[in-house]
């Protein structure tokens, strides 16, 4: 793969249900290697639908998706791309964490040793190896999220899509996830989130979507600091990008003391 060559090309993609407006409306997008793309936008804007189209779960009405030079066909298994769902309960369907993480590698027809190696590695990487024999319903919300990520990690997917990865996570697990994502060697990431501070910390490119279209595409700080653009599309400028005319309360207290 040449430098600056798109690993995922989406051209003129349209999707919708009968008698409804298009959920994805003539969308074109190219994703390059080493890009961490944050997908932001109000609820119901088509972010999850876009992900399901990219992964070949749903079939577009028109348009084309090309992944590593090969067109994505609905229902065809492409382990190069993985997706972490918004609700880990949707993803953890096996009776034990180990079996769930092994599900992908088994379907990739790897040898027993390779399956075991991959499961071990991904569980250890996320620090949840000790939970391998636990049933998913015995895990906390954060542990479930990490187990769901481990399931995708074990497939060695080059592109990983995260749908609202920080939802329902406490501060400790949120930080764990940020550190993991920052140090991850995945070739590209697509992250849909309403946690804009998280997007700022992890992503090097942001796409603002509204009504199935890309409204803005570029540097996260540049896009998210544009107050007018953000508010027009039902979003709020992140606190860290807000200019503080008056110092924070604790700074005042320090000065006074």
């Amino acid at each position: 793969m040449k430098k600056n060559e798109a690993i995922l090309e989406i051209s003129e993609l349209t999707f919708g249900y009968e008698n409804n407006n298009a959920i994805i409306n003539n969308l074109t997008l190219n994703i390059l290697a080493n890009e961490r793309i944050g997908v932001i936008g109000p609820n119901g804007t088509g972010k999850t639908t876009l992900f399901l189209l990219i992964t070949g779960v749903k079939k577009p009405i028109s348009g084309k998706i090309v992944l590593y030079g090969k067109e994505v066909i609905q229902g065809k298994f492409r382990p190069e791309i993985g997706m972490v769902f918004q609700d880990p309960n949707d993803q953890l369907f096996c009776p034990s964490v180990y079996d769930d993480v092994a599900f992908g590698p088994i379907n990739m027809r790897l040898s027993r040793d390779d399956i075991e190696k991959r499961v071990k590695e991904s569980l250890k990487k996320l620090g949840i190896y000790k939970f391998k024999d636990k049933p998913p319903h015995h895990l906390s919300g954060g542990q479930k999220r990490l187990a769901a990520i481990a399931g995708v990690l074990a497939m060695n997917s080059k592109i990983v899509i995260y749908d609202e990865p920080t939802s329902n996570l406490d501060i400790r697990y949120r930080r764990k996830l940020i550190n993991f994502m920052k140090n991850s060697n995945q070739e590209a990431m697509l992250i849909a989130s309403h946690d804009l501070e998280f997007i700022l910390e992890v992503c090097n490119r942001v796409i603002l979507m509204d009504e199935g279209k890309i409204i803005a595409d570029g540097d996260p700080k540049e896009i998210m600091s544009n107050e007018e653009l953000m508010e027009t599309h039902g979003l709020e400028k992140p606190h860290s990008l807000t200019f503080h005319a008056s110092p924070h309360r604790h700074t005042l207290l320090l000065k006074n003391s």
Partner: peptide, 9 residues
């Protein structure tokens, strides 16, 4: 759940 399963082969 079915989508999640299809995505993992």
């Amino acid at each position: 759940i079915y989508y999640a399963m299809v995505l993992r082969g």
